[in-house]
Design a protein around this nucleic acid. Structure first.
Lengths: 232, 232
DNA sequence: AAGTGGTCTAGACCACAGA
DNA sequence: CTGTGGTCTAGACCACTTT
């Protein structure tokens, strides 16, 4: 739990926001502070958070207002499982391969380990409501996930990392490309060769900025798109 | 000018960060406050900003540290011109069409105007270092850009919106898809039909959350990719 | 135990919007 | 002019990491 007062406030303000219509003005910061019996700085912190979530916007001299509808969320680091559930579908997984191999130079650099160190590679077909959606190859330094085995990789790897190994991924660098599927990938994803797809290369880091996981994913473009809000 | 002290501090801290190596620890907040003759709250605000930019990370009880290299920036709202310059290339533009037409229902909804209201549509081929990179169709309610004409649309529309009309775009909702180019678009972009591309639908809003611009862009995937950092 | 960032207070003044 | 959000101060205590 990060902060008791802070968290409670967030919830309360969130409920308050949900009761309002887009472009409605929230009570002033001073009012909110008085109403909730906290200092204005605390209210501001909570409102900052709502702002980060894209729920409210502020105009100096005028007030704080509720955002109109939108894709709302800024791009967030999510696991495939979370992502699919957010889209209202049920994620599942088919393990294609799991192996341990020594790291090559490039991979070693990305994972910040020594070339030759053992790396566990997991290759999975990931499905949404039973439909093949994504081909995913994840690589993790074996030292970071001792005793990981086949039974563990049917669901969210992120949950296992956090639950069993205490590793929290907090940040990831992504390179997203649009590609045409080659014959092999197309067959695995059950679409025609040459179909459009997203190819995503991702390096995920923990809260101490240490690279943990390096993945390459290929998403069927007919089933997957990216929606997000960006800011100035 | 947002805030004099704040801005100066940012610069100073930024310089400080640049002198350090990844994972080096910054001076403590209390030290920084003393050194720069400001309160700790002010230092924290500046460090928060560096955190948002992805330059530093903090660990409670331990310190504030410099981030390792990465794609660094979170996805930002940029114009094509800025974007291309960031990639070290020179943007240019070829006007394909500019016209004024009444808004259809769907477009009217997106731009929050009345169906039938005049909308200016600008269709451009956008190039990077002289190579066709993107086909872009922008639509703006004509009322928001009176007297806009052909001469104005050779460069960054965002600059014109801000400079001439005082409209600042601060937020945009994007829908990104991977597609295969049809014959017409492929010809315009000078690649083979069926080549992979990004199709981006964007609605950009001003600081008061009013939709200003609605655009559809098609980017050649062989020349364009998306790099960004995401967080938990 | 000492030192760090995280939260919070109670006030002050500034910059800006709007009637 | 009044009221709003934006910045800032000088303190306090809490939660956590590290030694």
């Amino acid at each position: 739990m990060a902060s008791p007062k802070h968290e409670r406030l967030r919830e309360v303000l969130l409920a308050e926001v949900r009761r309002l219509q887009p472009h409605d003005m929230l009570p002033t910061e001073r009012e909110l502070a008085a109403t909730h019996g906290v200092s204005r700085a605390t209210i501001r912190q909570a409102l900052d958070h709502l702002g980060d979530l894209g729920l409210v916007y502020r105009i100096q001299g005028a007030g704080t207002f509720v955002h109109g509808t939108s894709y709302s969320k800024t791009l967030l680091l999510t696991s495939f499982s979370e992502d699919v559930r957010d889209r209202g579908m049920e994620p599942s997984s088919r393990l294609l391969a799991i192996a341990e191999e020594p790291a090559g130079d490039e991979l070693a650099t990305e994972l910040d380990i020594t070339p030759g160190d053992p790396v566990t590679t997991i290759r999975r077909l990931r499905l949404a409501d039973g439909q093949p959606m994504c081909l995913e190859t994840v690589r993790i330094a074996s030292a970071k996930v001792p005793e990981l085995d086949e039974k563990d990789v049917t669901g969210s790897l992120y949950e296992i990392l956090e639950g069993r190994y205490g590793v929290r991924l907090t940040r990831a660098d992504q390179l997203v490309r649009a590609v045409a599927l080659d014959n092999k990938d197309a067959a695995a994803l059950e679409v025609a060769p040459g179909s459009p797809a997203f190819a995503i290369h991702r390096v995920a880091l923990d809260e101490r900025d240490r690279p943990i996981e390096c993945s390459d994913s290929i998403y069927r473009a007919d089933l997957y798109d990216m929606r997000f809000t960006i800011r100035r």
